[in-house]
Amino acid sequence: MSAAGRSPAARPVRLAGIGTALPGEPVGNDALAGRLGIAPEWVETFIGTRTRHFARDLDGGAVRWTLEDLCTDAADRALADAAAEPEDVAFIVVATATPDALMPTTAALVADRLGIDGVPVYQLQSGCSGAVQALALASALLGNGARGRRPVGLVIGGDVCSKHLDLGQNFREMPPSQLVNYVLFGDGAGAVALSREDGAGRAVLTAAEHWLDGLGRSPGQTVEWFGLADRHTDRPAVVEDYKAVESRVPVMAREVLDSLLDTLGWPAATLGHVLPPQLSGRMTERITRGLRQGLEWEEVSCVAQTGNNGNALVFFQLERLLPRLAAGGRAVGMAIESSKWIKAGFAVEAT
């Protein structure tokens, strides 16, 4: 496990600025279902997501935005929100499951676009839990002598899931384990600027933890990478075991919440907000009901509007949370990755 902001000798890690980016206009269920030739009622009933954004054109398939584009836009906005300049950035951490290329990394390309040089750049290859992994790594780096004029750690999470989806298939004959990916996911990116500078930002990142929980378990999601030797294989690019996800994720979310509260010593009744895992609109509703247990905290969700855009989700939730967080307010968030079953959670406290 990893943690942030708990050492009494270290100044707390502060959320100094935040920014997000979505490609193009929202795509509603009627438009998406019409393109796929399926019933919009199926999307609403089964998935519960109302809109999502795509970096690809749904009609012609042309790529309109890259992951690099979206991450750069989100990072620009986070730095502006923090009143920080590129020369303040001590390091960059990017979390993604869908990089534009294996090399060079999206992290390095974004640094170049931002005019940042001479600092470490990290890229974490992970699904929905990657954003929390990136926050944990950045918190450790800030406490380990990060250099810079201020300094600021720039943490970015994003995914362009549509790059893996073949729009030329016969969707009426597609099995549900593959079809779900065409209605579940969207594209986007988010970023936060972290700082240990006194007075920076509106809240403190009190914890960021993640741990593997997949020993002996089959993967709940597989995303293939195809090279020249196997690009014509019949293996689907993305497969989701949605039944396993439905069964496992609510239990894992509860375990993460209980673990964080126990570690922090926070009574559940002191929580003002909870940021539940953002798999889909319908799944998030179910998970939230299981987590609430009679408590009066406010849910902070985004997936019904943004779609499941992977590593961007935590940042969209934080963007919604921060304006609502009153002084002394506490919030806990969870991200569950079904690939090989990774638990992740974080806690935020208003200054």
Rank of each mutant, 00 (worst) to 15 (best):
H210W: 13
P8N: 07
R52L: 07
T66R: 14
L194W: 04
R149T: 15
L205M: 08
G186Q: 05
V204W: 00
T222N: 12
A191W: 01
L271W: 00
R113F: 00
G199Q: 02
Q278P: 10
R324P: 07
V204A: 07
E349K: 12
A331D: 11
I156S: 08
G333F: 01
G333V: 04
G186A: 08
A331K: 08
G153V: 02
T96C: 03
G328F: 00
G199I: 02
R52N: 05
P120A: 09
I287H: 04
T106G: 10
G28C: 06
E209P: 03
F315G: 07
P219R: 11
A107K: 04
S139V: 09
I18A: 07
R64A: 14
A344K: 04
V192I: 08
A200E: 02
A80P: 05
G281Y: 01
A237F: 08
E299F: 00
S339G: 12
F226G: 10
L79P: 04
G345W: 00
D258F: 00
T263W: 02
A31L: 05
Q125H: 15
T66V: 09
G60A: 03
T20R: 09
R292H: 05
F316V: 11
I92E: 04
P236H: 01
A268D: 13
D88A: 06
G28Q: 01
R77T: 11
G345I: 00
H232K: 13
A304H: 13
G115I: 03
V239F: 00
A327T: 13
